[in-house]
């Protein structure tokens, strides 16, 4: 992609990661990699966010938190699973308190491999997420337009019924 048409805002949640991927996510925002120059902002509010970065796998305690954050985000939204733990639970797969990758809780659009995922890989994942976001935006727009037409038809039909009665 030669240019970015949208500056996505990001929300980051640490599932049960070891911090390795979390500090790499933060490292993306700091001067060495500096994605903030493209307008990418790490926001704390799910309602402001376009892209949901999840590090670490889900467990019984945090599965509801992950779902809640996802549901609070406005559509269109993209989920990027950062690191091998978020993809498949990785080294902790056999731990008793691990349910599995993030896709056990919410639909995931982009998987970023690595333990810990490198900042370059995370940035690449977010850029991939952008094209998914664009597709989702288009389909959402069509869906909304169809809904509007349908709502209009319904209104018209109701009006005719009223007049008939």
């Amino acid at each position: 992609m030669s240019y970015v048409t949208k500056s996505p805002w990001i929300i980051h949640y640490d599932g049960s990661s070891c911090n390795g991927c979390d500090i790499e996510v933060l490292a993306c925002l700091t001067p060495m990699y500096d994605v903030e120059r493209f307008g990418v902002i790490n926001t704390g509010n799910p309602k402001h966010a376009d892209i949901f970065l999840v590090t670490g796998s889900v467990n019984a305690q945090n599965i509801s938190v992950v779902k809640q954050i996802y549901e609070q985000m406005p559509r269109p939204k993209v989920v990027v699973a950062v690191g091998i733990c978020a993809a498949s639970a990785g080294i902790f797969k056999e731990c008793y308190n691990i349910i599995g990758g993030v896709d056990k809780a919410i639909p995931v659009d982009v998987y970023v491999p690595g333990c810990a995922a490198r900042p370059e890989a995370i940035i690449d994942g977010v850029v991939k997420g952008l094209s998914v976001l664009e597709e989702k935006r288009k389909s959402l727009k069509e869906e909304l337009a169809a809904e509007t037409v349908k709502a209009g038809m319904d209104f018209k039909a109701e009006g005719e019924e009223r007049e008939g009665a």
Binding site: N59, E94, C95
Partner: peptide
């Protein structure tokens, strides 16, 4: 606390 508990001490058995 308990949001990131993995139980990795138990992995010594595996």
């Amino acid at each position: 606390i308990g949001f990131v508990h993995r139980g990795l001490e138990k992995l010594v058995e595996k």
